[in-house]
Design a protein around this nucleic acid. Structure first.
Length: 477
RNA sequence: CGGGAAGUGGCUCAACUUGGUAGAGCACCUGGUUUGGGACCAGGUGGUUGCAGGUUCAAAUCCUGUCUUCCCGACCA
């Protein structure tokens, strides 16, 4: 195995930020555009998003949701009906003030999120309890006027899905909020191979306008946390603000209970920062648009025919496989599969073929193995894909455990945040003043209050008063 | 939005200090030889130096503005 560093990628242990942008560029996921904070998603990057979409879309439909599409623009008066939302988003919305060279009577906001549009639509389309629940989802892009931008992690325009639902009862809506959180959690676990941490956001960190927010948090390789998904419970706030009235079973007017939930192409950033290495992108097999690369070495006919034979067999089993029969040298092709994060590479050369063997290489560990040419290639590949998927999850979990500290003392807390980035489990009394105090330590924030009975102490790490909430703290992107 | 750095062919950079009309490596194209970890030989394409003004006989170079990117804060998926 060649351990030579990829010339175009700086080591992630040397300069993590530069490493990240190197991966984005060299793996051809996205490139910069002339519009600040808006990237060009290239085929390699968009294919990952499409894969995420197809898996999640299926899960949403299985749970009874329908896709819809709302307008891109929101009239100002509509946005202003829910004050908390407006205040929360005011600093980061972009406005359309002119149309066809004429100043508009009322300016239009480019959606930063679509609660207002869905609420308005619900108000006009729901009149009876028989119309409930409404379970909608939208795939779209939204715009938020971010000041500092980074590809996938924080762009002004980003791709996402936003689910919006209304229900007859509080219990039903709360169950929906939790159900969608769990779908995200499963997706992170089963497909992205990312051990997520789920829990409730504190009052301070919840979504503007929500009664409470659940979050999917993930820990990146460098110890920084990334909020990767959210599920909000709104209660009747929006339905009252937007007049979503319906006649209930007692023939009285009532307001439905509402939720919204979303994940974005930020998940691609998470995939990079959790799994990838100095050789390039590493993708979990279940999310990799191309799963197997076959590299024939030389133009020997026997070699090429075996390559095509394998490709046919794998493709017929639904395993996305391609042959790189370009004129490049083998070394170049090997490196390319590694940069692009193809989970499995099969090398077929005349020399080994004469001995009846081929080489199979897994991307995550770059470990090479020899197989007999008459092997059941489909079975071998399937087993290896599963192993890679599972091992990637296990490695990420181990990394997270290594970088998670349990702390009961504020000095220790500061020491860890300043010197060993990672997550900290510590008790909190519930007072936002204590949360503010923590933030003074390198901007460390509460990530979430996880769903657990675990207690690491009985007093608040900041004020020392009685505390029964365990909070995960960390530096965030 | 504050503080810092940087923009020269697709990428990495040189020429800038001391103004004289842009150069290298990689990539790309053609032909040939090759092929077990980023091949070799020969030939070739590609840049009004991010953009807009200004100074000057002359601007990549000096000045002003602006846009974009990166880093550190504040704000946020």
């Amino acid at each position: 195995m060649n351990n030579k560093q990829n010339k175009e990628i700086i080591s992630r242990d040397v300069d993590f930020a530069k490493w990240y942008t190197d991966i984005v560029r060299v793996s051809k996921l996205a490139s910069y555009s002339n519009t600040k904070g808006c990237v060009v998603l290239e085929p390699n990057g968009y294919a990952i998003w499409e894969k995420m979409q197809s898996i999640l879309d299926k899960k949403f439909k299985e749970t009874g949701h329908s896709n819809v599409y709302m307008p891109l623009l929101i009239p100002e008066n509509l946005l202003r009906k829910e004050s908390e939302l407006v205040e929360g988003f005011a600093p980061e919305v972009a406005w359309v003030t002119e149309g066809g060279n004429k100043k508009l009577e009322e300016r239009l906001c480019i959606r930063p999120t679509s609660e207002t549009l869905f609420s308005e639509h619900f108000a006009s389309s729901v009149s009876s309890y028989r119309d409930l629940p409404k379970l909608y989802n939208q795939w779209c892009s939204v715009l938020r006027w971010e000041k500092e931008t980074r590809p996938f992690l924080r762009s002004r325009e980003f791709l996402w899905q936003e689910g919006h639902t209304i229900h007859e009862t509080k219990a039903e809506a709360e169950a929906e909020t939790l159900r969608m959180l769990n779908i995200y959690n499963e997706f992170f676990h089963d497909y992205l191979a990312i051990p997520s941490i789920i829990g409730k956001k504190t009052e301070k960190e919840k979504f503007a306008g929500a009664e409470y927010t659940y979050t999917v948090e993930a820990l990146m390789y460098n110890g920084v946390a990334l909020q990767s998904g959210t599920s909000h419970y709104f209660g009747q706030k929006f339905s009252k603000a937007y007049g979503i009235k319906y006649l209930n079973r007692e023939n009285k007017y009532d307001y439905p209970y509402q939720t919204s939930w979303g994940v974005s192409n930020r998940m691609i950033g998470a995939l990079i920062m959790v799994h990838s290495d100095d050789y390039g992108l590493v993708l979990p097999p279940k999310i990799a648009p191309k799963k197997v690369a076959i590299i024939p070495i030389g133009d020997d006919l026997e070699v090429l025919s075996l390559a095509h034979d394998y490709q046919e067999k794998l493709k017929s089993e639904g395993i996305e496989t391609y042959i790189d029969d370009s004129d490049k040298s083998p070394g170049f092709k090997f490196a390319k599969t590694e940069v692009e994060g193809i989970p499995i590479r099969i090398e077929i050369g005349k020399r080994d073929l004469d001995n009846g063997i081929i080489t199979i290489v897994r991307r995550d560990t770059r470990e090479k193995r020899e197989l007999f040419t008459n092997t059941d290639i489909v079975r071998d590949v399937k087993v290896l894909l599963d192993d890679i998927q599972n091992d990637m999850y296990d490695r990420a979990l181990r990394r997270r455990e290594e970088l998670t500290y349990t702390v009961t003392d504020m000095d220790e807390f500061e020491d860890i945040i300043n010197n060993r980035p990672g997550l900290i489990k510590a008790m909190w009394c519930g007072d936002s003043k204590c949360e503010e105090k923590i933030k003074e330590v390198r901007g460390c924030k509460s990530r979430c209050i996880p769903f657990t009975d675990e207690k690491v102490d009985d007093k608040c790490i900041v004020c020392g008063k009685k505390a029964d909430k365990l909070v995960i703290w960390g530096i965030q992107y």
